[in-house]
Every structure is written in C-alpha cells, then in structure tokens.
Design a protein around this nucleic acid. Structure first.
Length: 284
DNA sequence: CACGTTAGTTACACTCACTG
DNA sequence: CAGTGAGTGTAACTAACGTG
C-alpha cells in the first residue's frame, strides 16, 4: 500500500479519510456501520455492492453510502486503483445539517453513484485535496477546517443530484441483475424461514452456484447476509417498540431465541436487551 | 420469601451451506 | 460432487427481576 493518509478512526470516527493507491490486487471489504461514507475513484475499476445491488465504479465516480447501508467492494477484472474513502459520523456535522438539512439529501438519492463530468471532477478533487491536506498533520483549526471542507463537499453533492437527474447505471451482467433480485427477495421475506435450496429453486438456479455467486457479487455469504438483515430489523424493533425479546426474535425471522441471541451478539457485540437499554440512554 | 416470567448462556447433536 | 465446518435447534441451566 502506498500514499496512504488516514485521519480518525475507521469504525468510531467522527471523521476518517484515507487515500490509497494500489497496484496489486486488493482484499475485499464488506460491512455496515453507523457512519456516512463517501468514495471517490481516481483510477481503475471497482465493483461496489450497495444495499441491494452492485455497481461498476469507474474513474470520476463519487459513491455515497448512507448510514447503516450494507456495502462491499471487490476488484473488477482490472487490478489496481486509486481512491479516497471518507467516513463521517452524523454527530460531526449535526449543527450544520440541522440548519441545512438538504446537505445529506444526496445520500437518500435513487442512485448512490454520481458519475461526474469533467468540471465536477475538478471541483470534487479540489475539495478532497484540501481535506487530505488538513488530515495530514495536526495544525491550528484542523477540526474546524475538516468540518468546513466536508460541508463544502456535501453541498456540492446535494446540488449535483438536484440539477443532474442521475439515472441508475445498468446492471453489470444478467447474473448481477438476478442476484440483485434475490437480495431484494431476502430483504422482503427475511421474517420467514429462508433456505438456500428453496431460494435457488424459486429463482431457477443451482444451490451451489447461487451460494458461490451470492458471495462473489455481494461480498456476503447467504447466511451472513440473511442474519445481518434480520439483526437490523431486530435492532429497529428493539428501539422503536416495547416488544419482548422473544417477540422481536420471531418478527425478525429467527428460528429460536437462542439462535437470535447468538447471532445478535456476534454482530453487535452485545445482548438484545443491552442494545435496547443503550439506545434508551442515548435518547436522553 | 417462594414463585413465575423473561433473558441469556452452554453443551451436544445434526444439517446444510460453503468450498476445493 | 463430496467432505467439512459453520450455523442451527433442543434441552437444560443460571441470572435478573417483579409480584403475590
């Protein structure tokens, strides 16, 4: 890895920026977190799976990922790429967003990928340069400057999606389209017992092939993905309702309370009740 | 206090998803 | 296609808490 600049903590934030230029192959990453993510590609090609489908990311693309949206990157056939990743917590810019709620609207836009024209690229790269410069060394007003340039970048994205209606890019291949359909199926029916074999039959594809392709395209295995979707629903129910843990477990599609507990702990590091209590404390 | 209810943990056996 | 291990269900236990 060369030319790496990092600032902040990738998982806790409140702000993290990383500039990477890689020539070789790149390990895949896949996760979900409470921060917003911005991804800008200078060179190369990447596959990016976001929420329920995959995108081929090309140079000059700016990718916007909302809080808690599942996402995964992997190499396309072409190896090597240069990119900037920014993660930031809502808390970092909360007062500003309060004043100007439209700043985050690009994150809920129909397509998470903004394909920038040349002037737009120059504008974004200029802001990124400033952010990278600020992140490099500690200096007077660093935090302020980072918030300032980040706000500038967000304003740019908000105006861009407002003025340039962005069409959703084509699916990379029919297989990608199919996996995307299956992912949406899982997102809809996660609360019922889902099995790979039945899913495969329903979508007319062999179970082994589905297992392989699902992992390759989404970055998650079938079971991993299903569990994440179920835990997300469980988290929502725990916070927004007063349902008992066993009821949450059933509504989220878990076969048993034991299994719910195991999976929940594995993904969140705490028990369901703890999660609810922690969320309650944060409310006040 | 004794009891019931709810939540969380562990052991063990099995099955099914993943992988080579 | 087949072997393997991760994931899952059942059962049995403990912990925490409220209630008569």
């Amino acid at each position: 890895m060369s030319g790496t600049i990092t600032y902040g903590n990738e998982n806790e934030g409140p702000f993290y920026i990383q500039h990477i230029h890689r020539t070789g192959s790149f390990e895949r990453t896949q996760h979900m977190h409470d921060m917003f993510e911005l991804y800008y590609l200078y060179e190369g090609e990447r596959m990016y799976f976001i929420r329920d489908r995959s995108y081929l990311i090309l140079p000059g693309d700016l990718v916007l990922i909302n809080q808690r949206d599942l996402h995964a990157t992997s190499d396309s056939e072409k190896l090597g790429h240069a990119r900037v990743v920014i993660n930031f917590a809502e808390s970092l810019i909360a007062p500003t967003v309060n004043e100007a709620p439209f700043l985050l609207q690009a994150f809920t836009h129909a397509s998470p990928v903004l394909r920038l024209d040349l002037p737009a690229r120059r504008a974004v790269e200029g802001i990124l340069d400033k952010l990278l410069h600020e992140a490099k060394d500690e200096m007077l007003g660093q935090d302020f400057a980072i918030r300032h340039y980040l706000t500038e970048l967000l304003l740019f994205t908000a105006r861009f999606v407002q003025t340039q209606p962005v069409a959703s890019p084509e699916h990379v291949s029919p297989l990608h389209r199919k996996i995307s359909t299956i992912v949406r199926h899982i997102n809809t029916y996660f609360d019922s017992p889902l099995r790979l074999e039945e899913l495969a039959e329903h979508f007319d594809i062999s179970p082994a092939y589905l297992s392989r392709m699902f992992k390759e395209i989404t970055g998650f295995s079938f079971v991993e993905y299903l569990n994440i979707v179920r835990v997300q629903e469980a988290q929502r129910l725990l916070v927004t309702t007063k349902l008992k843990v066993i009821e949450v477990s059933e509504l989220a599609g878990f076969g048993s309370l034991v299994q719910f507990g195991r999976v929940f702990r594995q993904l969140t590091g705490m028990t369901p009740l703890r999660y609810r209590q922690q969320a309650e404390r944060l409310q006040h």
